[in-house]
Protein backbone atom coordinates (compact mmCIF):
# COMPACT_ATOMS: atom_id res chain seq x y z
CA UNK A 1 0.00 0.00 0.00
CA UNK A 2 1.33 3.42 -0.95
CA UNK A 3 2.03 6.02 1.71
CA UNK A 4 1.70 9.76 1.19
CA UNK A 5 2.81 12.60 3.43
CA UNK A 6 -0.04 15.05 3.09
CA UNK A 7 -0.16 18.23 5.14
CA UNK A 8 2.26 16.78 7.65
CA UNK A 9 0.39 13.52 8.09
CA UNK A 10 1.38 10.15 6.64
CA UNK A 11 -1.63 8.47 5.06
CA UNK A 12 -1.94 4.99 3.61
CA UNK A 13 -3.54 4.97 0.18
CA UNK A 14 -5.01 1.79 -1.23
CA UNK A 15 -5.07 2.66 -4.91
CA UNK A 16 -3.41 1.54 -8.10
CA UNK A 17 0.06 3.11 -8.57
CA UNK A 18 -1.04 4.65 -11.87
CA UNK A 19 -3.74 6.68 -10.10
CA UNK A 20 -2.98 10.37 -10.55
CA UNK A 21 -1.95 12.07 -7.31
CA UNK A 22 -4.99 14.35 -7.71
CA UNK A 23 -7.42 11.45 -7.38
CA UNK A 24 -5.43 9.86 -4.58
CA UNK A 25 -5.76 13.14 -2.67
CA UNK A 26 -9.45 13.64 -3.47
CA UNK A 27 -10.85 10.12 -3.28
CA UNK A 28 -8.48 8.27 -0.96
CA UNK A 29 -7.05 10.90 1.38
CA UNK A 30 -10.44 12.62 1.23
CA UNK A 31 -9.33 16.23 0.72
CA UNK A 32 -11.52 17.83 -1.94
CA UNK A 33 -10.11 21.36 -1.94
CA UNK A 34 -7.79 20.28 -4.76
CA UNK A 35 -9.91 20.36 -7.92
CA UNK A 36 -10.17 18.44 -11.15
CA UNK A 37 -10.47 20.84 -14.07
CA UNK A 38 -8.79 19.21 -17.07
CA UNK A 39 -6.74 16.12 -16.14
CA UNK A 40 -3.94 17.10 -18.54
CA UNK A 41 -1.98 19.65 -16.47
CA UNK A 42 -3.39 22.55 -18.46
CA UNK A 43 -5.63 24.43 -16.03
CA UNK A 44 -3.82 24.24 -12.68
CA UNK A 45 -6.94 23.72 -10.55
CA UNK A 46 -5.19 20.69 -9.03
CA UNK A 47 -2.03 22.54 -7.99
CA UNK A 48 -0.40 21.31 -4.77
CA UNK A 49 3.07 21.82 -3.32
CA UNK A 50 5.41 18.86 -3.67
CA UNK A 51 8.42 19.59 -1.46
CA UNK A 52 7.53 23.24 -1.92
CA UNK A 53 7.31 23.11 -5.69
CA UNK A 54 3.94 23.99 -7.26
CA UNK A 55 2.86 20.81 -8.99
CA UNK A 56 -0.16 19.88 -11.08
CA UNK A 57 -1.27 16.80 -9.23
CA UNK A 58 -3.30 15.41 -12.13
CA UNK A 59 -0.06 14.99 -14.08
CA UNK A 60 1.90 12.74 -11.71
CA UNK A 61 1.01 9.29 -10.47
CA UNK A 62 0.67 7.97 -6.97
CA UNK A 63 3.44 5.50 -7.72
CA UNK A 64 5.92 8.25 -8.52
CA UNK A 65 5.55 9.97 -5.16
CA UNK A 66 7.41 8.69 -2.10
CA UNK A 67 6.53 8.90 1.55
CA UNK A 68 9.40 11.29 2.16
CA UNK A 69 8.09 13.89 -0.26
CA UNK A 70 6.00 16.49 1.52
CA UNK A 71 2.67 17.24 -0.16
CA UNK A 72 0.82 20.37 0.89
CA UNK A 73 -2.74 20.95 -0.30
CA UNK A 74 -4.94 24.02 0.10
CA UNK A 75 -6.23 22.53 3.35
CA UNK A 76 -2.70 22.48 4.75
CA UNK A 77 -1.39 25.77 3.41
CA UNK A 78 -1.89 27.41 6.80
CA UNK A 79 -3.31 26.16 10.07
CA UNK A 80 -6.00 28.83 10.27
CA UNK A 81 -6.54 30.00 6.69
CA UNK A 82 -4.35 33.02 7.31
CA UNK A 83 -1.49 32.56 4.86
CA UNK A 84 -0.75 36.07 3.51
CA UNK A 85 -2.16 35.04 0.14
CA UNK A 86 -5.40 33.88 1.75
CA UNK A 87 -5.62 37.09 3.77
CA UNK A 88 -5.06 39.19 0.66
CA UNK A 89 -7.62 37.13 -1.26
CA UNK A 90 -10.27 37.84 1.35
CA UNK A 91 -9.40 41.52 1.56
CA UNK A 92 -9.87 41.92 -2.19
CA UNK A 93 -12.72 39.42 -2.64
CA UNK A 94 -10.61 37.73 -5.31
CA UNK A 95 -12.67 34.58 -5.94
CA UNK A 96 -15.76 34.53 -8.09
CA UNK A 97 -17.05 30.97 -8.49
CA UNK A 98 -13.96 29.87 -6.60
CA UNK A 99 -13.39 26.55 -8.35
CA UNK A 100 -9.96 27.49 -9.69
CA UNK A 101 -8.94 29.36 -6.56
CA UNK A 102 -7.35 26.52 -4.58
CA UNK A 103 -4.93 26.07 -7.46
CA UNK A 104 -4.48 29.82 -7.88
CA UNK A 105 -3.68 30.25 -4.19
CA UNK A 106 -1.24 27.34 -4.14
CA UNK A 107 0.54 28.67 -7.22
CA UNK A 108 0.63 32.19 -5.77
CA UNK A 109 1.93 30.98 -2.39
CA UNK A 110 4.72 29.06 -4.12
CA UNK A 111 5.62 32.11 -6.16
CA UNK A 112 5.87 34.26 -3.04
CA UNK A 113 8.02 31.66 -1.30
CA UNK A 114 10.43 31.82 -4.20
CA UNK A 115 10.18 35.53 -4.95
CA UNK A 116 8.96 37.63 -2.03
CA UNK A 117 8.48 40.72 -4.25
CA UNK A 118 7.42 39.36 -7.64
CA UNK A 119 7.13 41.68 -10.62
CA UNK A 120 4.18 41.61 -13.01
CA UNK A 121 6.38 39.60 -15.36
CA UNK A 122 7.12 37.09 -12.60
CA UNK A 123 3.40 36.78 -11.99
CA UNK A 124 2.63 36.28 -15.69
CA UNK A 125 5.26 33.54 -15.85
CA UNK A 126 4.23 31.73 -12.68
CA UNK A 127 0.47 32.13 -12.76
CA UNK A 128 -0.61 30.09 -15.77
CA UNK A 129 -3.69 28.70 -14.06
CA UNK A 130 -6.98 29.07 -15.91
CA UNK A 131 -9.86 31.10 -14.47
CA UNK A 132 -13.01 31.37 -16.55
CA UNK A 133 -14.92 33.81 -14.31
CA UNK A 134 -12.32 36.53 -14.69
CA UNK A 135 -10.30 36.95 -11.50
CA UNK A 136 -6.90 37.47 -13.13
CA UNK A 137 -6.53 41.15 -12.29
CA UNK A 138 -7.51 40.61 -8.67
CA UNK A 139 -5.20 37.60 -8.44
CA UNK A 140 -2.37 39.86 -9.58
CA UNK A 141 -3.37 42.57 -7.12
CA UNK A 142 -3.69 39.98 -4.35
CA UNK A 143 -0.16 38.68 -4.92
CA UNK A 144 1.26 42.21 -4.81
CA UNK A 145 -0.73 42.96 -1.68
CA UNK A 146 0.47 39.82 0.07
CA UNK A 147 4.05 40.61 -1.01
CA UNK A 148 3.84 44.09 0.49
CA UNK A 149 2.54 42.60 3.72
CA UNK A 150 5.31 40.04 3.85
CA UNK A 151 8.03 42.60 3.41
CA UNK A 152 6.48 44.87 5.99
Amino acid sequence: MAKLNVNGRVVEVNASPDTPLLWAIRDHVGLTGTKYGCGVAQCGACTVHLDGVPTRSCGITLGSVTETQKIVTIEGLSPDGNHPIQVAWRALDVPQCGFCQSGMIMAAAALLAEKPRPTDEDIDAAMTNICRCGTYNRVREGIHRAARGLSG
Binding site: R26, T32, G33, Q86, D93, P95
Partner: peptide, 21 residues
Protein backbone atom coordinates in the same frame (compact mmCIF):
# COMPACT_ATOMS: atom_id res chain seq x y z
CA UNK B 1 -20.06 45.52 0.78
CA UNK B 2 -17.72 42.50 0.81
CA UNK B 3 -19.03 39.25 -0.54
CA UNK B 4 -20.62 36.88 1.95
CA UNK B 5 -19.03 33.77 0.47
CA UNK B 6 -15.34 34.48 -0.02
CA UNK B 7 -13.73 32.81 3.01
CA UNK B 8 -14.50 29.18 2.17
CA UNK B 9 -13.22 29.71 -1.37
CA UNK B 10 -9.76 30.55 0.01
CA UNK B 11 -9.38 27.44 2.16
CA UNK B 12 -10.78 24.69 -0.06
CA UNK B 13 -13.74 24.26 2.29
CA UNK B 14 -16.51 25.14 -0.14
CA UNK B 15 -18.16 21.94 -1.34
CA UNK B 16 -19.02 21.87 -5.04
CA UNK B 17 -21.14 19.24 -6.71
CA UNK B 18 -18.09 17.26 -7.76
CA UNK B 19 -16.93 17.15 -4.11
CA UNK B 20 -20.10 15.55 -2.70
CA UNK B 21 -19.77 12.30 -0.79
Amino acid sequence: VPRLDTADKTTGKLIYGSDLK
